[in-house]
Design a protein around this nucleic acid. Structure first.
Lengths: 261, 261
DNA sequence: CATTTAGTTTCATATTGTGAAACGCATGGT
DNA sequence: ACCATGCGTTTCACAATATGAAACTAAATG
């Protein structure tokens, strides 16, 4: 998006060590040469960086294959960051209730610019189907229930901006790829008081979402109940939507929202 | 704990930048000086490292307070690591070790609602008796060692729910069919640090189980060593229980559990 | 208005990270 | 059995890079 050189990283080795980590996070187990070639760094340099990561406990080498991978230590660190997000502390019991009521998977997401970040997940209690979503996952806004729930609260101007800056991709036959259609869909969200993702993101998955209002004016969080179409019948969607709206109201109140009703 | 110099980190700036990150992960928002003093690094150095983290998107500075904090990017990275952390890959070598030590059958199970799913099995190396268990098998929680190991970590409320939703069946003379008796049994599990299934599920089979803690609060996995009563004497149970507890500790650590000792 | 404390910027210096080269050890092709 | 190839590792001379003292700015404190 930006052409200019952007003032460059003041610590070269930090830049490189994180490139290595990101590489490992993305690809799992990797050999030294593989990383070296992919990043265009000298193998000796990569080796030193890896040794440093191993020394600090963030990476480890498989004895047999000699390949390198990240350890759980980074997960620990992320856990501490997440714990500090106090929204989690407050929201968890409500989401738990929602999960108990429906038995389906429940997600809590945070807006991060034009995208959403999954910050909590409760697995479905019934059935054997599992969503591929996981905490830490980043997802575009335009093709998810939670994304629509957030977008429905935004002014046209910002909505347009998000749309233009997003890579619109037809994930399923039902994915909305036309801007005007999206505007219409969001009107519906506002009218209903909840957002429905009807197989727009993943075939066979329906999802009922609502945003969370707080003491600050801008909406930063949303949550959803998702499940397979087989269980998410029209009738069931209605039921769950009622629960979702109830939780939205209760939680928003707890988060310090003055209005709503 | 260690007196020796331990070969030191080959990349000094990496060492320091991670010290800064760990500091931020632990304490949340921090000022430059705060970090500088806590780590004994020059403020200029800390500033440069922070600039580097900000540049890469791993940290950000609060506009108002000027304080620094970690961003969600590390959470995103951890998410990718987690996705890849398929429990089996990690657990297998430990279970293998357990199997070698005891020679008996070893199982790994996953909680699925009120039941457990066998996801890995290692056959006994001694004797000719074989368990009927197999990967993919679903079993109720209330009458197995692994089930009790998981249930022992649950709050009373959820325990009651599982009990009510399960079809309680007297599989052997020793099967626990009374709720209060189960509660008492679970207290014992917590006290011992492992769960014992003493012919409660199948006549002639004893089984020592423990749950696995992970980065997430709720316990989702458990494992066990099972064998015929003829070989599983009181003394042998004690021995194996020690091994089981050791593996529980090691594996939980590997899976990112922060606590436990 | 002086004083302190914070964050930021600059810059000379040498410490630190760099990468070429060589090593050892598998693996695999002929 | 042999050599060729590719990988991870180690070493080391060199200079690019990270370092920290000092100067600077801005806000908070008295």
């Amino acid at each position: 998006m930006s052409g200019e050189k952007d003032t460059k990283n003041p610590v070269q080795s930090a830049e490189r060590i994180f490139q290595v980590m990101e590489m490992l996070a993305e690809n799992g187990e990797m050999g030294l040469m593989e990383i070296s070639i992919a990043l265009g760094l000298h193998k000796s340099t990569v080796h030193r960086l890896l040794m440093s990561l191993v020394y600090m406990g963030y990476a480890k080498q498989d004895e047999a294959s000699q390949k390198y991978m990240l350890s759980y230590k980074i997960v620990n660190m992320a856990g501490k960051v997440l714990e500090r997000m106090d929204i989690l502390q407050i929201a968890k019991p409500y989401l738990e209730k929602l999960s108990d009521l429906s038995g389906e998977a429940v997600h809590l997401v945070q807006r991060e610019g034009n995208q959403i970040l999954y910050i909590h997940k409760i697995e479905a209690k019934v059935g054997t189907i599992r969503m591929v979503s996981h905490v830490g996952m980043i997802h575009p806004m335009y093709c998810s229930g939670v994304g629509k729930a957030i977008m429905a609260t935004l002014p046209e101007r910002e909505l347009k901006k998000i749309w233009n800056e997003s890579v619109i991709e037809k994930k399923t036959e039902k994915t909305i790829t036309d801007y005007d259609e999206m505007v219409k869909a969001l009107e519906e969200v506002r009218a209903n008081g909840y957002a429905l993702d009807d197989e727009e993101n993943e075939k066979g998955v329906r999802c009922i979402a609502a945003c969370l209002y707080g003491y600050q004016k801008d909406v930063r969080y949303a949550f959803s109940v998702s499940g397979p179409t087989s269980r998410m019948t029209r009738e069931r969607v209605k039921e769950i939507a009622a629960d979702v709206k109830k939780v939205q109201k209760e939680l928003s109140k707890e988060l310090g929202f003055p209005g709503l009703d």
